[in-house]
């Protein structure tokens, strides 16, 4: 009888060690700096894609809404720029009388500084421009954008097309 107790106790101790070891292994694996860096990268990429889509989508009939969305998706330099000549930009957009819709075909983070909260992203964007009463044109363009982390998540601080010969 005693032997069964001893064997069972040893088994219990061994399995406790086994469970404890892999419990710690799981915890440390899912909380490692690598795993958290990867999730920061994914978050920046997702926010960047949404931001780029927001910036490249506009409707001359809803310029105010578009501008507000632009301001919401941007920070720093880019936001200041939009905020500064909001009125002239608005007039320009209304006069252009076109509707542009865009979607990101692919994007990737080129650099990521988790501590500084800054990242760079490149994106391939398909934009469809429909002029008022005109024929729609679809174009594929490439963009480079800088992202900055704010209290409300990652936002665009720079956005520009990568033209040939840059």
């Amino acid at each position: 009888m005693r032997i069964f107790t001893v064997v069972a106790a040893v088994l219990a101790v061994l399995t406790f060690g086994y469970a404890a070891y892999f419990g710690v292994a799981w915890y440390s694996a899912s909380n490692s700096s690598s795993a958290s860096f990867a999730s920061v990268r994914d978050e920046a990429l997702r926010s960047g894609q949404v931001g780029v889509t927001n910036f490249l989508t506009l409707d001359y009939k809803k310029v105010d809404e578009d501008l507000r969305r632009w301001l919401n998706s941007s920070t720093g330099e880019l936001r200041a720029e939009i905020d500064k000549d909001k009125d002239s930009r608005k007039k320009q957009l209304v006069d252009a009388k076109s509707v542009t819709t865009s979607k990101v075909l692919d994007a990737a983070i080129t650099e990521l500084d988790d501590r500084a909260g800054s990242a760079s992203m490149i994106a391939v964007v398909e934009s469809t421009v429909t002029p008022d009463g005109g024929q729609q044109v679809t174009k594929i363009n490439r963009y480079l954008t800088k992202l900055t982390r704010t209290e409300d998540g990652w936002k665009l601080s720079q956005l520009g097309p990568l033209r040939a010969g840059v």
Binding site: W26, A29, S30, A38, R41, D42, I109, L112
Partner: peptide
């Protein structure tokens, strides 16, 4: 669980 913890290593 610990084996299935995987993340994309790009940049990481």
């Amino acid at each position: 669980k610990s084996r299935s913890v995987s993340y994309d290593a790009a940049l990481v």
